[in-house]
Write a protein that binds this DNA or RNA. Structure first.
Lengths: 325, 325
DNA sequence: TTGTAGGCGTTATCAA
DNA sequence: TTGATAACGCCTACAA
C-alpha cells in the first residue's frame, strides 16, 4: 500500500496525505479529518525509506558502542535511545568492540544509511574512520572519550583528572601504599595515568599494577586479590578500573577473611548497583551513564533543530566515599 | 557524491559501479579494478537509503527489546547484532519497556523503515501491534517468549517447564518449605506458575511469595531477605526470578550471618556472572542468552536467504546445581 | 560483459 | 488550502 492508495481513498492528492501526516497544520480541518480516517481505516504505514530519500532527512541516528554487554554502556545507550525515540528518531546500532578492527568498514556502511547524527562511545581508532566521519558532515557526539580524541561534540569528563582525584582522596584518607587492578582499554589507562601522576605529586609511588583485557568481570577481580595481597603492603589501597573488579576483590576478601578496609582499601569506578549493594558498600567514582546518554541525545536533537549548543559538555564524575576506604 | 560521479570518473556507467559493489563477479577483472579504485580514491559511500528503495531490500532488522539495562537482554541483543552485522544487516533498536504503552506506535514507525525481519523479545501486548506485524509480511522471531504468545518464529524455552523443573529439583534435594521472590513481568510469572504447579504435584505448597515490578535489582533482593525469613520455615528454599534478586539475598544473608544453604536455600534464574562469582556460588537456571540471540539472528538470515527453517527452536534451560541449594 | 530506460514511494518546489 | 511535476540515488529488467 502506497501513499497514492490512501490519497485515492480520501479523494485527495498524494501530497495532501503527506501533509496530513507531516504538517497537519497546513490542512483544513475537514480535509485533515478525512485523510487521517482513511489512513487509520486502511492501516497505512508510511515508507520512511522513500521519505528519507526524498526529504534528505533520514530521522536516524547511528550509535557506535564497543559493547552493550557492559552495564555502563548499556545504561548510556538505553537513555540515549529513549530520548531520541521521544524526539522521533530511530537508532541504528553499531557494535564495534574494543579493538579497531573493521572499525572503518562498520562506520562506512552505517554512514551509508544517511544518519542525521552519530553517537560515538570512546574514541575512533583508525584515521580512515575519522576521515569518513569528517566527510559525512553530520554532528558527531563523543562520550566516554576525552578531550585529546575529541570529535565534533563532546559529552564527558577527563579520565585523567578522575584518576588524580582518586589518588588525592586515598592519600587524604591516610593510605600510603597503592595498587591498581585495571582493564587495559584506553579510558581505563588514562585514569591509571592520572592516578599515577596524582601519587607522584604527593611523592608517592604505585607499588603494583595488574592489567587485563576488557571487558572486566567479577571473576577477574576475585583472581586478582591474591597477587595483590602479595605485592601490596598491609593497609594499602587499590584503585580498580571497574566496580566489577572491585566487587570481585570484595567477594574474595570475604572468602579469605581479609578485612576491608582494614587490611585493604578498595576504590572502584562506575558506581554500578553491585557496588552499592555489597557489604561494605564500595567507595567508587560515580559517573551518571544515564545522564551522559540523555545529554548526548539532547545535544544531537538540539543541533539538528538548528540550535546553537556548546561543543563541550561536562558531566560530573564524583568520588562516592563509602565503606571500603 | 553520487554513484554517477564515480561512474564518470571510472569511465563506466552507473550500473557498473553498482555491480562492482554488489555483484563483483559479473564484471571483468579490469573493469572491476578500475571502478573499485575510483570508489576508493573518491571515498564514495553508497546511499543505502536509495538502494533500499530501489531494490526493496533494506538490509535492516528491527529489534524490539523491553530494555537493555537488564544484562540478560543486553547479552542477547549483543549476540543478535553481532551475527546480523556479519551477515550484512543493520539493526535498528526499539526499546519498548515492559508495559504495552506506545507499543503499537513504536512498532508502526519502525515498520515504516521497511525492515526485512524483526526480533521481538517477549510477547506483543496489544492486538493492534500484533495486526501491524502480521500485515508487514516479514519474518518475526520471538525470543524469551513462550508458545502461547508465539509469533511467526520462536526461539526459546517453556518458562512454565523451567519453574516445574526447579520445583522438582528442590524437592529432590529434600526441601519441604518454599518461597518465591520474583519480578511480576509475564515471563517471571509463568515460571512462578510452573513452580507452584510442580510443588502441587508433589503435594506441597508455596509458603510465601513476594512480587515486585521489573527490573529486578540486588537491592530489592537484599530487602527481601528479612520478610522471607519471617514467613518461611527454617531449612526452606526460595526460587528467585533473577540471579540479581538471588545474589541480593546472599549478600544480605552474609551480613546477617544467615547460613546458606543451611538455613535458607536459594535458586536463581539466568546464570549471570554475579551468581557464579558469589560465595557460595549460586544454584540457578542457565539459559544461554548469547545462544538465543545468535540463533534468532541465524533464523532470520536463513529465512531471508530463502532456506526452510524450523518454526520452533528450543534452547536448553538447565538447572546448575551449585552451592546455595 | 556492459549499458539504457524506467521506476521504487515519498517530498520539495512552484503554481493555482 | 490544495495540486502537478519533478526530483531523491539507486537498482531491476531488458537489451546489446
Amino acid at each position: 500500500m502506497r501513499i497514492t492508495d490512501v490519497a485515492a481513498a480520501a479523494g485527495v492528492s498524494a501530497i495532501t496525505v503527506s501533509r496530513a501526516l507531516n504538517a497537519p497544520e497546513l490542512l483544513s480541518k475537514a480535509t485533515l479529518r478525512r485523510v487521517l480516517s482513511a489512513v487509520e481505516r486502511m492501516g497505512y504505514v508510511p515508507n520512511l525509506t522513500a521519505g528519507a530519500l526524498s526529504s534528505r532527512r533520514s530521522r536516524m541516528i547511528v550509535a557506535i558502542v564497543p559493547t552493550i554487554a557492559s552495564p555502563m554502556y548499556a545504561e548510556t545507550l538505553q537513555a540515549f535511545t529513549d530520548v531520541l525515540s521521544q524526539a522521533g528518531y530511530h537508532v541504528v546500532l553499531g557494535l564495534g568492540g574494543f579493538d579497531g578492527r573493521d572499525e572503518e568498514q562498520l562506520i562506512t556502511t552505517l554512514l551509508g544509511r544517511q544518519p542525521e547524527g552519530l553517537l560515538l562511545v570512546g574514541a575512533v581508532q583508525s584515521t580512515g574512520a575519522r576521515r569518513r566521519l569528517a566527510e559525512a558532515m553530520i554532528p558527531v557526539v563523543q562520550i566516554w572519550g576525552d578531550a585529546s580524541t575529541a570529535a565534533d561534540l563532546q559529552v564527558g569528563f577527563s579520565h585523567a583528572s578522575v584518576g588524580e582525584a582518586v589518588a588525592n582522596h586515598l592519600c587524604d584518607r591516610g593510605y600510603r601504599a597503592f595498587g591498581v587492578v585495571s582493564s587495559d582499554d584506553p579510558r581505563a589507562l588514562e585514569r591509571l595515568e592520572g592516578f599515577r601522576r596524582g601519587l607522584q605529586r604527593r611523592g608517592l609511588l604505585l607499588a603494583t599494577q595488574r592489567l587485563m583485557p576488557p571487558p572486566s568481570t567479577l571473576m577477574e577481580g576475585r583472581a586478582a586479590l591474591e597477587p595483590l595481597l602479595r605485592d601490596l603492603p598491609r593497609h594499602g589501597a587499590v584503585f580498580c578500573s571497574s566496580d566489577l573488579l572491585a566487587a570481585g576483590l570484595l567477594i574474595e576478601a570475604g572468602v579469605r577473611g581479609v578485612r576491608i578496609p582494614g587490611e585493604l582499601a578498595i576504590c572502584g569506578f562506575g558506581d554500578l548497583e553491585i557496588g552499592r549493594a555489597m557489604e561494605p558498600a564500595l567507595t567508587t567514582v560515580s559517573v551518571d551513564g544515564t545522564e551522559m546518554g540523555q545529554l548526548a541525545a539532547r545535544c544531537l536533537v538540539d543541533r539538528l533543530a538548528g540550535n546553537r549548543i556548546p561543543r563541550r559538555l561536562s558531566v560530573p564524575a564524583e568520588i562516592i566515599q563509602r565503606g571500603t576506604t
